[in-house]
């Protein structure tokens, strides 16, 4: 009644929206890196918004299903196959007992997600089911998945209405260059005018120091007025720190709660998924927007999710035809 891990891939963990409410005590939030792909994966199988999924990185896992369930695969394209046949992405898929779901390495993007209609059975620790690897809590035994791990399902849920309508257009993941919209601050005043111009007008390269904690970028030097050390303060998802070496570091899901470098800006929530799906040597640029614009974008995205929900809940043709048939037959019985 669940999934068996045949191959774990590079870094596969159980994640949800993160463990909030404990940052004041030093707990990282953790949670998914790409919130958008996560939400779409859950949406496709009518899961609650914060239902845990599997997140995998650069090389995907191979999983054996030991019971029937419905899944959806979103995020980067890792060439998924089911029993050797190509599997669709951004689509609800009925998995049968014994099916083998296999992923290769990331063709587009760098992180993938699988949602399960039968819900992964991992304990809730401090309000969340996500894996915090540093503190070894949550998720599956507080760690990344290994071969032979066996995750059970919490419920039996093998039916979803409008099954054939449950498909969405995959998000674009392999643009040459992405522009990340940022809200300047809270410590942008510590940088020179020139430094801020450099930050907003240059292309930065994603280095290989890119993990769930953060992403180091390489590119033109961002000048500060008099150093960029501050008395340690709180960090949020998408904070852009610029230490004295003048290159930005963007802090992500597994970030430490506090840090001692000035933060020139914060990436807009809706654009963090674009960053976390980049690969080493990809380019990013920054564009300043106001906090109001950033919040508007976030609300627009919510509306977009509502639209997606409507799309997948539309009675499909096959169902309509059934009804038509039924209507015709009914007259015979009246």
């Amino acid at each position: 009644m669940g999934i068996r891990v045949l191959k774990p891939g590079m870094l596969t963990t159980v994640q949800d929206l993160g463990r909030t409410g404990y940052q004041s005590q030093g707990f990282s939030v953790a949670g998914v890196m790409d919130v958008r792909s996560f939400k779409i994966a859950n949406l496709l199988v009518d899961n609650p918004e914060n239902e845990p999924v599997l997140e995998f990185t650069l090389i995907g896992p191979t999983l054996e299903f030991t019971s029937d369930t419905i899944i959806a695969i979103t995020g980067g394209d890792f060439n998924p196959t089911i029993n050797g046949e190509p599997a669709p992405m951004y689509t609800a898929i009925y998995m049968h007992k014994g099916d083998i779901l296999k992923f290769g390495s990331a063709v587009t993007g760098s992180r993938g997600y699988i949602s399960f209609s039968s819900y992964l059975k991992v304990p809730t620790v401090m309000g969340s089911r996500c894996t915090n690897m540093k503190s070894s809590i949550g998720g599956f035994k507080g760690r990344k998945l290994q071969a032979d791990d066996y995750i059970m399902f919490r419920i039996k849920r093998r039916y979803l209405p409008f099954f054939l309508s449950r498909t969405l257009k995959p998000d674009e993941m392999d643009q040459e260059q992405v522009t990340l919209r940022v809200v300047m601050g809270p410590q942008d005043h510590m940088f020179t005018k020139q430094g801020i111009q450099t930050f907003l007008n240059s292309a930065y390269t994603v280095t290989n120091e890119f993990d769930r904690m953060g992403c180091r970028l390489d590119g033109p030097f961002i000048a500060s007025k008099s150093g960029s050390d501050i008395i340690s303060d709180g960090i949020c998802f998408g904070s852009v720190q610029v230490p004295s070496h003048g290159k930005p570091i963007i802090l992500l899901a597994d970030r430490q709660t506090t840090g001692g470098y000035a933060k020139i800006a914060t990436v807009a929530s809706v654009d963090i998924p674009k960053l976390v799906q980049r690969k080493t040597d990809n380019k990013v640029r920054f564009k300043a927007i106001t906090v109001y614009e950033a919040q508007k974008l976030l609300l627009d995205e919510m509306a977009e999710f509502d639209e997606m929900r409507k799309t997948i809940h539309r009675p499909c043709r096959e169902v309509l035809e059934c009804r038509l048939t039924a209507k015709r037959i009914r007259s015979l019985f009246e």
Partner: peptide, 20 residues
């Protein structure tokens, strides 16, 4: 969530519930 530090307090909020 809130993160109190030496001289500052970071407050995380959900803009879907309350705007800036």
């Amino acid at each position: 969530d809130m993160i109190p530090t030496y001289c500052a307090l970071l407050i995380n909020y959900d803009p879907r519930v309350i705007l800036y």
